[in-house]
Structure formats: structure tokens, C-alpha cells
């Protein structure tokens, strides 16, 4: 398969206009699935009710708080995390792997744009749509019905939006790496399943990481996963404020850069393999 990309070629930058256009395309592509967004919101709300019931049953036993969360903070945690499920794509994605399998990736590599950054731009567009279509309603509805605690700390308030954005970037960088596996194995369902399982457990989707036994908490923070969901939720619930909030976002940024860099490294090897072996 002829590919324009050469091993070790200098990375092509992504102009801002192109990034915006790609993000818009990502937004528009998902905006056609309105019914699905509505159905997804309904399902997220049902799961939120079950999750919250579990957490409230815990604080009933422990005298009103658990691991520093009170009732309203738990509710905030649950609805914030349910709202973010689609935004940070907790259940993974495999479109890149699909393009690798079909060989369409050669087309992408031949474009005069940076592959990783263009996919990131598209993914940010997708996430922006998910905030509106799948995030807002469960949060408003759940908060109204079950209580909500607004963050009062100015740093936390100011950093909430950047934290969500960086959560999407960390998630993207992880999924990009998993998808690159498609260059070496035919079927990525295996790696994807493992990724989704580990993330779901360690990002705080099933239960907040702060409630974990120490050994599991340590294990979780050795991975990038808590920065997907736990981190923005920490800001929203007021668990992390002031300098701690800044530290949270700094850690997200560090993980983003490290994982993106790793992704570039692996991509370079993958392209070399593609060029040398002809796919």
C-alpha cells in the first residue's frame, strides 16, 4: 500500500482553522443521532439512580458521610460522573482501529495534517456535542431530584471546565494507544475489553475511588484512569480545592502530554511497519 508518510518524517502541524473544522465535523457527525442521545440520557439517569442508592445506603450506616462525602456531594458525584460517561467515552471507541483494519488509515496518513492531533480535534468536537446532548439533562434532572452541592471554592469553579477538557484529552490519548494495537493484531476486541474494564473500575465510574481500600486506591492512582472521571468530579464536589485543585489539573496535564507523546512514538513505529511491510 503506497503511503505518503515516510518513516521519521517531520511531524506536520495542525493549523487552527483545520482543527476547528475537524472539531465541527466531529460535533456534526454525532448530532444526527438525536434519538440515541435521548435514549442514552434516559439510561444514564436510571443507572445514576441505582448508583446513588448504593452510596446513600452506605452513609446511612456510617453516620452521614463517607470518605469526606456528604449526601449532596455524593449526589453531585453520581450525576457529574453519569453526565461525563459519554463525554470522556468511558466505554471506549474503535473507529481508528476500524480504519487501520480496512486500510483507510493510509488515506489519513497521506493528508498534510498531523494524524494524532486531527483525531484529537475530531474527538473534542464529539465530546462537545456529548456535553450538551448527553451531559446536561441527567445532571440537571438528577441534581434537582436528589440534591446538588455547588462548588464554592473559586479555584475549583475556575478550573472545572479545563479539568473536563483535559479529562477528554487523557481519555483520547488512552483510546488512541489502544486503537493503535490494530496495527499488530487483527481483532482489537480483546485489548479494548481489558481497557474498558480497567477504566470502568479505576476511573471511579462504578464507585468513587476515595471509597476504595488503600491498596486499590494506590493501584488506581498508578494509572491515568482516575484523571478521566474522578478528577473533574473532585472539583465539582469540592473534594479538591485551592492548590489541590490546581494540582489536580496539573496532574491531568502531565498525563495528557505523556500519553500523547507515547501515542506519537507508537504511531511512528506503526507507520514504519506499514511502510516497510506494506500494511
Amino acid at each position: 500500500m503506497p503511503v505518503a508518510a515516510q518513516p521519521g518524517r517531520p511531524a506536520v502541524a495542525l493549523p487552527a482553522a483545520a482543527a476547528l473544522a475537524l472539531a465541527r465535523a466531529g460535533f456534526a457527525r454525532w448530532a444526527t443521532y438525536r434519538q440515541a442521545a435521548l435514549a442514552g440520557m434516559f439510561t444514564n439517569t436510571v443507572f445514576g439512580v441505582i448508583k446513588l442508592s448504593v452510596l446513600l445506603a452506605i452513609i446511612k450506616q456510617t453516620g452521614g458521610t463517607v470518605a469526606g462525602y456528604d449526601r449532596d456531594q455524593l449526589s453531585t458525584y453520581v450525576w457529574m460522573s453519569q453526565a461525563l460517561i459519554a463525554v470522556v467515552a468511558v466505554f471506549g471507541s474503535s473507529d481508528l482501529a476500524q480504519r487501520v483494519r480496512t486500510g483507510d488509515i493510509a488515506v489519513d496518513l497521506a493528508r498534510p495534517l498531523d494524524l494524532q492531533l486531527s483525531w484529537l480535534a475530531t474527538d473534542l468536537g464529539r465530546a462537545a456535542y456529548a456535553v450538551f446532548a448527553r451531559g446536561v439533562l441527567p445532571m440537571v434532572l438528577g441534581g434537582a431530584l436528589f440534591g446538588f452541592s455547588f462548588p464554592t471554592d473559586p479555584a475549583a469553579v475556575a478550573l472545572l471546565a479545563p479539568a473536563v477538557l483535559l479529562a477528554v484529552v487523557v481519555s483520547f490519548a488512552c483510546r488512541f494507544l489502544v486503537n493503535l494495537a490494530a496495527f499488530w493484531v487483527v481483532e482489537i476486541r480483546g485489548p479494548l475489553t481489558i481497557y474498558v474494564l480497567t477504566t470502568n473500575l479505576l476511573c471511579g465510574l462504578i464507585i468513587p475511588v476515595q471509597l476504595f481500600p488503600t491498596w486499590l486506591k494506590v493501584l488506581a492512582y498508578a494509572t491515568p484512569f482516575p484523571w478521566l472521571l474522578q478528577a473533574p468530579c473532585d472539583l465539582a464536589t469540592g473534594q479538591s480545592r485551592g492548590w489541590a485543585a490546581a494540582g489536580t489539573v496539573a496532574a491531568q496535564l502531565a498525563w495528557s502530554l505523556a500519553l500523547l507523546a507515547l501515542g506519537r512514538l507508537v504511531l511512528a513505529r506503526a507507520t514504519r511497519k506499514l511502510v516497510v511491510q506494506g500494511g
Binding site: I58, Q61, T62, T193, L197, F212
Partner: peptide, 23 residues
């Protein structure tokens, strides 16, 4: 992998009982 999915599901109950003795 499917066996592991079961394990992850069950971990919620494990974590709950790490916090409380009766649920």
C-alpha cells in the same frame, strides 16, 4: 475477559463492604 467483567462488577460490593458491615 468475560470472567474479568464479572470480577469488576463484584468489586463494587467488595468496596461497599470495605466501608460498612451491613448494606
Amino acid at each position: 475477559g468475560q470472567f474479568a467483567i464479572g470480577l469488576v462488577d463484584f468489586s463494587e460490593i467488595y468496596v461497599v463492604f470495605h466501608q460498612v458491615r451491613a448494606f
